[in-house]
Write a protein that binds this DNA or RNA. Structure first.
Lengths: 216, 216
DNA sequence: GACACTATCACACAATTGTGTGATACTGAT
DNA sequence: ATCAGTATCACACAATTGTGTGATAGTGTC
């Protein structure tokens, strides 16, 4: 009987060891390799065939989402099962859009995990039960134009966001950028609309999510 | 030869299974039980003796820090080793202050983990090597009286922070919590001082850094 | 050259936030 | 039983933020 070849990717060594130990117990599964980031995954796939890729959503550098995108592009036959602590309903859709086959919570039981790998290999959609509900919810929600797309934000606007994130007042920002407070207010106003937020707090939160404040 | 009795606590089932599998391979260690939150840990300790407690820092409800505090108070002989993904230098000090014996990153190797448990049992301080440096850093950085130390923030205050982070106005927060706007304003005022920030933006940023908004 | 976008500014006004200075009541720890 | 901390509220006022509705000028594009 052919064993299902599994590749593990997680930035936590212990997680890798743990998963390996769990999967090793099942005779029809075989861990053929491990990786601790997205690049290593792609490197591995270039060399060796893999049936199922178990992927941590949160990883330094290329995260699970981006990795999936690349993997499915170059190796469409590989089934990707995302492993995560996250239970946000919103992200599931982008995951499946990007080509993932499954999405499991890290606090799933090991039986569920093993069954999930087998199901994914058979081409079945795999979803932690807690999440199924949430997904249906977010599907049945009114088709609001909410989209994961990050709008175009200009350099000047980013300067403004950064200063706001540093607790500057509008007056201080104006002084720093050598413009009037009116100008700063206008930038903020435009940003609120673009980013679909109500105030500076929401703006800074989204800016952080979108990685706008990363490079100082 | 006596085996070292280990109790595992983590809210992720897979993590528990993984750790158990790793530890089971060492003949001098024995996993005598598992728990998925702080309360379960305390319940278990009341019934059965344990040598080393492997504790996840991030858990719903009572977190690792608080759990350690309670454990060391009632069961001072139990050695506590904290497991975490976090590598903030700041939190280490509060951990040791609270009575933890060790502090390991989840991406440590399994050999390191096993050795860590044994060392902790022998009363040795255990610290992931990456962290040792950071700790020394934060120690030598004396001049600043309060560096990175997370102040005590009450449950009520956290409720307020969470709502602010969700772009609620003071009025809306007051309505949600069934208190007056004055009360909300007072909570905010106190938080600004505690957290050493100037406004809500700074507060939400720090709250995010400190992981105050993690669990819904 | 028309069009879209960016960056700049003005003026007025409403809404909200933040501060200063109190107070009362409950709780848990010393 | 006292004391520190928490949670609650009041009132007043200053400061800041956010909105509505304009305008001008430079840039790059089709």
């Amino acid at each position: 009987m052919e064993m299902i070849k599994v590749l593990l990717a997680d930035d936590h060594q212990i997680m890798l060891d743990g998963l390996k130990a769990i999967i090793a117990k099942d005779r029809s599964l075989k861990v053929v390799g491990t990786a601790c980031n997205g690049l290593e995954v792609l490197e591995y796939l270039k060399k060796e065939p893999v049936d199922v890729l178990l992927l941590d959503l949160q990883m330094p550098g290329m995260d699970g989402l981006e990795t999936t995108l690349h993997v499915k592009k170059s190796f469409p036959n590989v089934k990707v099962v995302m492993l995560t602590t996250n239970d946000e309903g919103s992200i599931i859709m982008s995951l499946f859009k990007v080509g993932a086959t499954g999405y499991l919570l890290k606090n799933a039981s090991k039986e569920y995990l093993i069954q999930g790998i087998k199901d994914a290999h058979a081409g079945k959609r795999v979803l932690s039960s807690h999440l199924t509900e949430k997904m249906i919810e977010s599907l049945t929600e009114e088709p609001k134009i909410k989209e994961g797309t990050i709008p175009k934000i200009t350099k000047r606007e980013i300067e403004v966001i950064k200063l706001i994130a540093q607790e500057y007042t509008t007056q201080e920002i104006a002084d720093t950028l050598f413009v009037s407070t009116n100008t700063v207010a206008t930038h903020k106003r435009n940003l609120f609309v673009k980013m679909e937020v109500k105030n500076s707090v929401g703006m800074v939160k989204k800016a952080l999510e979108w990685g706008l404040l990363d490079q100082r």
